[in-house]
Structures are given as C-alpha cells and as structure tokens.
Nucleic acid binder design. Structure first.
Lengths: 332, 332
DNA sequence: CTGAAAGCGCTAACAA
DNA sequence: TTGTTAGCGCTTTCAG
C-alpha cells in the first residue's frame, strides 16, 4: 500500500505538506503543490480514510437504522437520505432492524462502534428503553425518523393524525357509517396517531368506535389479509375500509379480491400511504401520500446542524401528506 | 471517550489483555477476564472500530454501488446483501451511482478510500473503462452484480437471454406476429441479452425483427411511456408488446392505459421482471421474475470467498428466472 | 498466562 | 511557506 509518506518522499516534501495539499488545510506554494500532485498521480496514491478518521476524530460517516429495507417506502427514504448526505460529503451506513429492538440494538451498536458522526433511526417498538439511551449516552447526534418517541431529540415524520382523520371523514361524507380500519404494527407512534385520527373522525360525527371493526395487521400483509378476510366474510360487514399503511393495504386488497368483492361497489376503500404505481392498480386508490423525499432531506438537515454543534431545543417536524383523490372511495 | 487503556487501568491489567478478552484471541485466566469484563461494564466502554481497523488492516466493511436505490428491485437486492453480510459479521456501505459512470466513480472511490474489505458493484454503462480497473488495481475483492461486463471477475446476475426468448415465444405461440419490444438502458448487458432473446424468438420462427417495433425506453418510465404511446397510436400497431424491465413495464402500462386500450384484448403484454404486488395490477401480468434474494446472497458468498483469499478462476453465475403465467398475455 | 512496545497512516499543534 | 513531532486507540509480535 502506498502511504502519504511514500508520496512525500517522492515529492521531496514532508508528510504534513502532502496532507495539507490533500485537504486544502493550509496554503501551499504552487510549485510544491504541483510536485505533490505529480507524485500522487505517479504513485496512484489513495488516502486512507480509516487512518484519517482516527487521527482527526471524525469519520464523515452517518448511520441509518431502518426497519424494513424491502418496503419501497423505506427504499425511497434511504435514497433521499443517501443523496442529501453525499451532497454534504458524508457516506451512509445502513442497517436493517427488521422492526425488532434486539436487532436494532445490534445495528446501532455496530454503528456506534464504527464511530459514526451522527445517526438516523426509524425506531422499532421498545427502542426508547434499549437502544436510544445508549446512543444518547455516547453523545452521538441523533435524529428520529418516520416514527416519534417520547424522548427529547430531533424527530421528523409524516403527519398522521389529521391525514387519517381526513381519509375517514371522506368516507363518512359519502354516507358510510360502518367503517372498518386496518392498523399497522402496535406500539409505534404512527400506528397510534393514525388510529386516533380514525377515531376522531367517527366520534366527531357521533359514531362510536366499534371494536369488531378494528383490525390489527401487525406489520404483515399476510396477517392483514387474514383479518380482513375474516371481517369481510362475516355477518354485518362494514361498507367501507380504511387501511393505515401500505403493507396493510396490500393485505386488504388481496383479501377483498380473494372474496370476489369489488371496490368500491361492494366496499369503499381509502388508505394511508400511496404507491408509486398507484395508477396501475385496479381500482385506483384514494390515498394520503407521504412526502418521503422531504422527510429524508429534513432529517439530514437536522442531523447536520447537530453535528455542527447546535444544541438548541429539539425539533419535531411533521411533513404534511397529500390527498390523492382517486376512485376506490366510490367517487368518480 | 473511554479507551482500552482506561479499562486496562481499572482492571489492573495491560491494554493487550483487554484486547484479547474482547477478541478472544488468546487464553486469559478466568479471574482476569472477569476483572476486565467488570471494568468494561463499569465504564460502559465501547471498542473503537476505526482504531481497530487501522491497526488490524481490515475494516469488516463491504461497499455496494447500486444504480437506483428507488427501484424496488434494487431495494430488495440491498436487503438481501445487507442480510447476508451482517450474518457474516460485516457491515454494508451503500452508494447510489444513478446509472452514471462519473457518479459511480465517486461512489467507488469513496468506498475504496474507506478501505472496504470487498466491493459489490452493479456496473453502470462505461464502468469497465473508468471504475472497475481502479478497483482491481487496489486489489480489493470485487463481484459484479445484476449486469455483466467483459472483465475477468466474479459476476452474478439473472438469466436474461432465454427468459426474454421464452416470454416472446409465448406471444408467438398465441399467434402474434407483430410484437413490439421496449428495451431498457442501452449499453448494459442485461438490455442487450434480453433483446437478443427477443430477436432469437422471432428469427427462430422465421420472422424478421422490425426496427419500428423496437423501442428504447432508456432507464426512464417517462421515456418508455412516450415511446409506447407513439407506437401504439400510429398506424399498423403491433398486436403484442414485451417489456424488458420493470421501469419499462410501468411506462408501457401507463401509455396503454392513457390511450384507452385494454390488455390483453387490444394488445397482449408480457414482461421481464415481476412486481411484489403484481396480483393487484390490472391486468395481472405474465412475467419472468428474477430471484433477487438468490442473486444477493450468491454475490455475498462469492465475495466472502475472495476475501478469504481464494484466487481461483472467476465465476459467472446466472440465476434462473421464474415464469409467472397470468393473464396479460391473453391466456385465461 | 500476561505485559511492553512498536507500529497502522494520518492530522494538527508547534516550531522554524 | 514548510517541517518536526506527538499522538489518535487499537493489534500483535516478542519477551517473560
């Protein structure tokens, strides 16, 4: 391996000068610089970022713990984050927590061990007692993404409550009174907030929330499919359904299709989360779409600010969703 | 920051002993070990992987350069790779090349600077003259993924030629003679091979490949949509279409829908690449599905082998696709 | 079974 | 404008 020392020797300067031309950290005479550059060119020297990180005390690296890389939603998130970071000269290390605290702990520990300069976490349920305290303890700048947690740190996520309420209201406006709901994974804020939005819409019209109409799809499309299947094949089924995240939507649609029911004539449907290819689904889904791009870039902005030393009060940012009015709700 | 020295002092041993209990690299008396473990516990010590990497000469890190993180196909690939690596004790650093060599060069340079122990690359067009040689020069183990390049190194990708041929044949078997094709990005092997498969099917039946029926969607669904729109709204349009990757499929379907045509009655359709939610599309697509999981894990296997020092002849692995016979082709 | 000591390749005072 | 030097925190011979 060619080191800075080699380059220095060939250029007839000190290692420190080579370092400075490489980093532009102090003025170097044009001639000397050219000699150094020539030597670099000649040897094909590459800086060793590991050594650099150790000496400088920062790695220019940011860790991201995400809960499900296979979910296209998170795919876009990773992309947005990666983009914003690389623009700022950082690289991204990703880990998948599979929405499981133990797994998340492994991921974040490994990230911490690698001396990441900052960390973005989409917390799993239970995160606040196992992994987040440890991150805070090390003093690593942290921003939470997607889901909130009751802890004093920067957070950015989608607007949940009023978006879910708006979806539900839309169904009410169309005359539906028995509206089923399919919730996502229990124990995370987005599930709770969206469900609260659903409840608020109902009670706002003087309709009680009926337990039998509340389904838990956990995080799995399969579970959602089973639950919806059961509900929709029973007596006295609802005339409309609202799904609270994209995985639940898939499960719901499969169940409905499996029963030979059609949307919206047999049952109206609206959902939280949009799909890139929503236009190709049949029926076209009325949905509240998250602005994943903005969520990702905002998270990075907040993080960079902290990494630069800002220690003001934590920000909690909610990115609004967009209502896509298509026809699964029964409107034409 | 608490260092190994601190732990050593508290435990009343040398740093070297602490290192050995941490890594299990030599026998340590039970009592001493316990003292060390107590000190670690007490101080909340975390190993510094950066220092460790510098001293040991390896980072336990693998780089992945991917062409489009937003494409769900690559999302699953990243997931499979991350999983396999983390099982083997490595962490993944991802970079997005946006299917552009210059961008790819930046990504891989940064990965190389960070001393990754190995690298997985989904090469962009032009990779073989700009970025791959540099990787090879540094001696970093490399495996190519998704697309092949004419260079002597490990590669793993989907089967392209005969899968595309089979799709096209299926259309021919149903009596179609004028079959349009929508190609992906020019200059990458998967595009070429799949197109060759299409041609082989036609010429195998004595049908000439007609230029006007060959569309280039580049990498963009928008371009694909425009091209298909033009073709299908012209005179003498084909009776069937084959799309050669998922982005092209989206574009094609949008164009067809936009024209008010229906599949398969107005035009039959088959595609390379499946969608996770293919069942919810209307019509349900007849497709050749890649086994992304296997591609990812195989790539990691090959890489780990190289990283362990194997320097046998390069492997070129083709993972077969699965033919999903649904009804966009016109079969019931 | 354990410790001392020499680096890994680089950065950043401090001097000159 | 440049060089010298002392680390960064760890691994790993080599002795004991």
């Amino acid at each position: 391996m060619i080191t800075m020392g080699d380059v220095a020797r060939i250029a007839g300067v000190s290692a420190s000068t080579v370092s400075h031309v490489l980093n532009g950290t102090r003025k170097v005479d044009t001639v000397t610089r050219q000699r150094v550059e020539a030597a670099i060119e000649e040897t094909g020297y590459r800086r060793n970022v590991v050594a650099r990180s150790l000496a400088a005390g920062r790695t220019h690296t940011v860790g991201l713990s995400i809960s499900a890389l296979t979910n296209p939603y998170f795919g876009s998130l990773v992309h947005a984050v990666e983009q914003a970071l690389s623009d700022a000269g950082y690289v991204l290390i990703v880990g998948d927590s599979h929405d499981h605290v133990e797994s998340e702990k492994r991921v974040t520990d490994s990230l911490l061990d690698r001396q990441v300069d900052g960390m973005i976490v989409a917390p799993a349920a239970g995160s606040e007692r196992l992994t987040l305290p440890e991150i805070t303890r090390t003093g690593t700048p942290l921003v939470l993404i997607d889901r909130g947690v009751d802890i004093g740190c920067d957070q950015v996520g989608p607007e949940n409550f009023s978006s879910a309420r708006a979806l539900t209201k839309h169904l009410l406006d169309r005359g539906h009174r028995r509206i089923g709901v399919v919730r996502g994974l229990a124990g995370i804020s987005s599930t709770t907030e969206r469900f609260d939005g659903y409840c608020a819409a109902l009670t706002g019209r003087g309709i009680a929330v009926e337990d039998t109409l509340v389904l838990d799809g956990e995080s799995s499309t399969d579970v959602a499919e089973r639950e919806v299947h059961a509900l929709m094949s029973g007596e006295n089924r609802p005339t409309a359904l609202v799904s609270l995240n994209n995985a639940m939507t898939i499960g719901t649609l499969k169940a409905v299709r499996g029963l030979g029911l059609s949307i919206p004539s047999d049952v109206a449907f609206v959902c939280y989360d949009d799909f890139e290819w929503a236009d190709l689904f049949e029926p076209r889904l009325t949905a509240a779409a998250q602005d994943v791009e903005t969520i990702g870039t905002t998270a990075v902005e907040l993080l960079l600010r902290r990494m630069r030393g800002d220690d003001g009060a934590p920000h909690q940012i909610r990115v609004p969703t967009t209502f896509h009015h298509r026809n699964s709700c029964g409107c034409t």
